[in-house]
């Protein structure tokens, strides 16, 4: 078979727009996931038992079910409960953010637990509260350890965001599907889509490596 370059050329602007949407949804989802992960990660090691239990249940439920099913639950099942239709973008960000939050909470928990317990003791012995010691002493140190796994989570999220194509949200993968439906150029388009994902993930991993060197 022959590779139709002109097809790639014509499709590229549309695919690039899809790639931009993919980056957008990934960035917003990771930001949401970061906030959820921070709160849940700290809750997992808090001194309040009920918080620890709730946080563990959340992390286990989300990590133990497929993201695709979570997307369906939020886009199709949730409106049946609330009675309000949900926009594809909102559903996508919600599903990806909540999903990412569970993984990021594990990253925060591990990052916090990697800090010498003597740091918390020193803070407490000075009269600082648990929360104050966490905010001023532990988390600033933990964030440095957290950066590499957080970068990996960003990359994983970027790839997993292709799943939201199933609810018709027009990110990179969905754009590819739509173009193929018109042109039948499966081979050219999927290869281009894959190349675009690869370029984005490589760029992010280089960026993370750069940031890691700077914070050392």
């Amino acid at each position: 078979m022959s590779f139709d370059f002109s097809l790639v050329e014509r499709a590229l602007p549309l695919l690039l727009m899809g790639a931009a949407v993919t980056i957008e949804i990934t960035a917003v989802s990771v930001a949401v996931g970061f906030l959820i992960g921070l709160v849940v990660g700290v809750a997992r090691i808090s001194q309040v038992k009920i918080l620890r239990i709730l946080a563990a249940v959340y992390a286990d439920c989300i990590r133990g079910t497929p993201l695709l099913v979570q997307i369906f639950l939020i886009y199709f099942a949730l409106p049946m409960v609330t009675g309000h239709r949900i926009e594809p973008f909102a559903a996508a960000v919600m599903a990806c953010g909540i999903n990412s939050g569970a993984y990021v909470s594990e990253i925060f928990r591990a990052g916090i637990q990697s800090i010498d317990p003597g740091q918390m003791e020193a803070g407490r012995s000075l009269g600082l509260s648990w929360g104050q010691t966490m905010v001023y002493v532990i988390l600033p140190q933990a964030v440095r350890n957290i950066l590499p796994p957080l970068g990996n989570e960003f990359i994983a999220m970027l790839k997993d965001s292709s799943l939201v194509s199933v609810i018709g949200f027009e990110e990179l993968t969905r754009r590819g599907q739509l173009i193929i439906a018109q042109t039948y150029g499966s081979f050219e388009i999927w290869l281009t889509v894959a190349a675009l994902y690869l370029m984005m993930t490589l760029a992010i991993s280089r960026l993370v490596a750069f940031l890691e060197r700077r914070t050392k």
Binding site: E121, S125, G127, Y136, V137, Q141
Partner: peptide, 17 residues
């Protein structure tokens, strides 16, 4: 009590950040 009683540790436990 902790506000009034200071503690010095074997391994210093200064805040490195």
């Amino acid at each position: 009590v902790r506000r009034e009683v200071g503690m010095v540790f074997q391994r210093f436990n200064l805040f490195p950040n």
